[in-house]
Design a protein around this nucleic acid. Structure first.
Length: 418
RNA sequence: GGAGCCAUCGCCAAGUUGGUAAGGCCGUAGAUUGCAAAUCUGCUAUUCACCAGUUCGAGUCUGGUUGGCUCCUCCA
């Protein structure tokens, strides 16, 4: 989405916040004796490196909850002053959902009686069952907590996000930010609560648009530790190149659930392979300007709620048209330059096709093996010239046993890793 | 129990305000090739879970049925 908006000439400021104060982190601090910062620095760094491997554009702003406590305190104070938030005896601060007329407008969840709740939480200190904690007073001296005017404690989850947004974005009279993204599972209560807090504290809406992405399932099942089917991006990155994973992950509309499985991944890799084979055919050359119709067709598809399927269909069409023309006229320099420009356009827009095409097909093969392969190909070509096909086929078998596929093209024999 | 999402070819998956089913994988028939691979071309859903309705016309709208999924407690 960021790349598409930028390609449409919007000025985009991307923020990703880290809620680096939470129960799990605090628990880990107590267990390991490491400082909170030591723990979060490690996870934030690995998150960033994985996102980069997947070709996700870096955020312009990366606020942390620990650096935004002042903003949280002032947001909560504003709400207390308006009697929309209230402090209870323990020192906890709750948001009174009944004070916000628009509560529920984002998730369409009705704020009603306890009977609608599957499991009713019994907290007599709350005014309404749907009220949520803005601030939690610390229970013991060992807890990680921060001093505020209302109590010593730590922020609730929802307020962390709202405060960081208010701190970094001035916004307009109507909205703080334009687009708020997140997983569909966060719609309620998290986004609803974020919106309510900001609306009540600032008098304007938090975000103009909310977008929610679907879930990732593994082979048709929800990813979970108890099912034993969970894995991390870093595990996948050990097996597959980041661009191949990106190509797969990007291939399904963001709002749909994503069913991760190896068969589909390999299928989508074949599509990327085709793009790179075309790039091989037009390399080396200098890129000119991308084809306008191609460019416009893709931008129009992406502008339509990021219609990636349509975009991929347009790319397929471009690839086969170009291959067709190159079959007819292999030396069409103008076409080669335009095609390379088309691929560069795709690299900027989708983060695909940016690698040197020959190396793309040789990812994970060391120099020594490469030399062996080259030598075998040379031997096979000599045998072919002598029309000793028995020998040349034997060599090809030997090469394919190494997991390498070779293809004889007009420009000579090239090889790819299977 | 409450709120919401989804169901299109063997598999993945598009489908704008209702107008007569994209694309990929697989399969298959060819062109090309010493043979392959790569590349190209043709073929592959009278039909969109099911039933009923609205309409000149529905995958697209309405009602219902069946099946699958998510959220509704803490935590982020």
């Amino acid at each position: 989405m960021t790349r598409t908006l930028k390609a449409l000439n919007y000025q985009v400021t991307v923020a990703k916040n880290f809620t680096d104060i939470d129960d799990k982190i605090i628990k880990k601090v107590q267990e390991t004796g490491q400082s909170l910062e030591e723990i979060t620095t490690h996870y934030i760094a690995s998150y960033k490196s994985e996102m980069r491997a997947l070709g996700v554009v870096d955020a312009d702003i990366e606020p942390k909850a620990t650096e935004s406590l002042g903003a949280m305190e002032s947001l909560i104070q504003k709400l207390i002053a308006k009697d929309i938030a209230y402090v209870v005896n323990s020192g906890d601060v709750y948001f009174d959902t009944s004070k916000d007329e628009n509560y529920g407008s984002i998730s369409h969840q009705v704020v009603d009686d306890e009977e609608n709740q599957s499991r009713v939480e019994h907290n007599s200190e709350k005014r309404n069952p749907k009220d949520f904690a803005l601030w939690k007073a610390c229970s013991s001296e060992q807890d990680i907590c921060f001093e505020t005017s209302f109590s010593k404690g730590r922020p609730g989850w929802h307020v962390e996000c709202s405060a960081m947004i208010e701190k970094h974005f001035e916004g307009t009279d109507e909205y703080s930010i334009d687009i708020h993204a997140g997983g569909a599972d966060l719609l309620f209560p998290h986004h609803e609560n974020e919106a309510a807090q900001s609306r009540c504290a600032t008098g304007h809406e938090l975000s103009k648009y909310w977008i929610h992405n679907g879930f990732v399932n593994i082979n048709g099942e929800k990813m979970s530790k108890s099912l034993g089917n969970s894995f991390f991006i870093k595990d996948a990155l050990k097996v597959y190149d980041g661009e191949i994973l990106r190509n797969y992950l990007i291939s399904i509309h963001y709002r749909n659930d994503f069913n991760f499985n190896e068969e589909d991944l390999l299928n989508s890799k074949k599509r990327l392979d085709k793009l790179y084979r075309l790039k091989k055919r037009v390399t080396p050359t200098k890129a000119s300007k991308p084809n306008i119709k191609f460019q416009q067709a893709i931008m129009s598809a992406m502008s339509d709620d990021l219609n990636i399927s349509k975009t991929l269909a347009i790319i397929e069409e471009m690839i086969s048209n170009t291959n067709d023309k190159l079959d007819e006229n292999p030396k069409d320099k103008g076409l080669k330059k335009e095609t390379l420009a088309n691929i560069e356009f795709l690299d900027a827009l989708l983060g695909l096709g940016g690698k040197e095409p020959f190396s793309y097909f040789q990812i994970g093969i060391d120099e020594k093996t490469k030399n062996t392969i080259e030598a075998l190909i040379e031997a096979r070509n000599s045998a072919k010239i002598e029309k000793d096909y028995e020998k040349s086929d034997a060599i090809r078998d030997e090469i394919s046993a190494m997991g390498i596929e070779i293809m004889d093209t007009a420009e000579g024999t090239v090889w790819e890793r299977l």
